[in-house]
Simulated assay, not measured.
Amino acid sequence: MLHLTLPPGARLGELIARSVPPDAHVLAVCPGRFLDSPTEQELGGRKLAVLPAGSTPLTDEHIRYFLRTAARSDARQHARTAEEFFDLVGDSARLTIVDDTSGTEAEFDHGLGECVWNQQAGLLEAGDQQIFPPGKLSVTAAEITTFAPDARLLGLNGDLTLRGWPIVHRHEDPADGPDQQRLFEALSPLVANPVTLHITAGSIEGVTPQTAAATPAAAELEKLLTDDPRYRVIWELGFGINTTTEVIPANCGPNEVYGATGGVVNLGLGVTPATRFALAFLCPRSSLLTSDGTAVLGARKAMRRGRMQRVSSAGCGCH
């Protein structure tokens, strides 16, 4: 096993091309550092997994935890889960996201607009890159690393319940750290106190607290949407399928792969550096259903088969 240190100011791709054997499996873990994805030429036939450790404040214990749990992850099972997910979605003209506890429901017609499906799960082939720990599928309004303010998930309409841990990513300016922490703390009541997002054509039109205790978090969201309307766009619908990891009760980017026992829906707002922060919200009580009511993922999960195309890359935008 070869251990290398990435010098200050150096690019990961440069280090890999210069110092790593051409058929190596590479894990990049650089706490507090933002990493650019290597080019195809730099990576060559190597396999690369990158722990996003710059956009949220990971501790040494968090990193040790993800290293331990990733060793128990089954990449082949992730691949099978992804195949089943995309088969079901590809066979359904419309999808529905429901929260049985609150009764909210939103419809997603993924045939409208330029949807891009992404997979960060399954087996790596030579030259592939993937986030670490693996286990996330998603659909975005455009290429995942390129924020287009006019792009949106046009087929998404209805009400969505936010109930779960928030994640607040920042970009490279360390001066944003205190405001990042303040925003995370202001949104943390969502863990136990849900709010409803009212969505029209992929844009958030309003926020309603479902309980009195959720009012401060709803007010914080409303302020964010008013101060920067780009956050109104539901930029990403994510689907965590990693059933090995547990949620870290902190502002922790790798929480996005959390899949509970049957998969977890999450929402993404904003993309750094176009927006100051990028937000993700875990919704572990929601379910994703096909048009005939079959549960693709979540609390009502069930499976069947079909087929569709998706993009697989390491560019999550928040390394």
Rank of each mutant, 00 (worst) to 15 (best):
E61R: 12
V89A: 13
A79L: 12
R46M: 09
T81W: 04
P52A: 06
E61F: 05
E114I: 05
H110C: 03
F66K: 00
L112Q: 14
C115A: 15
D150I: 04
L58W: 01
F66L: 11
L88K: 08
Q77E: 15
S138G: 15
G54H: 09
A53C: 11
P57W: 03
T104M: 08
L51N: 02
D99Q: 06
D91N: 13
L137E: 07
E61K: 13
Q130K: 02
L153I: 09
P57L: 10
R152G: 11
G122W: 00
F108D: 06
L58K: 06
G135A: 07
G54C: 12
L58F: 13
L95S: 07
L137H: 11
T59V: 07
A53T: 05
C115M: 14
D150R: 13
L112T: 07
L137I: 13
T96G: 07
E42W: 02
A82F: 00
A126M: 13
T96A: 12
I131C: 01
R152P: 00
Q120C: 04
F66I: 05
P57D: 12
L51T: 02
V98E: 15
A70M: 01
F132A: 01
K136F: 00
T69D: 00
G54Y: 11
T69K: 12
K136W: 01
G113F: 11
F66W: 07
G111K: 08
A151P: 01
R76C: 07
G113M: 04
L153V: 02
G103N: 09
R68M: 04
G90C: 02
Q77D: 15
E84M: 06
L95W: 04
G135D: 06
E61L: 10
L58G: 11
H110P: 04
F108Y: 15
Y65F: 11
L124S: 03
F86Y: 15
P57S: 13
A151G: 11
G45V: 03
R64S: 11
R80V: 09
Q77R: 12
R76M: 09
R76G: 11
P133Q: 05
T81N: 08
T140H: 02
T96S: 13
T104W: 04
D109L: 02
F147C: 06
L124R: 04
D91S: 15
A93V: 01
I131A: 06
F85L: 06
Q130Y: 00
A75L: 13
S92I: 04
P134W: 00
L43G: 04
L95R: 06
S92F: 08
G111C: 12
A71W: 01
D100L: 14
A82G: 08
I144L: 13
P133K: 08
I63S: 10
A79G: 14
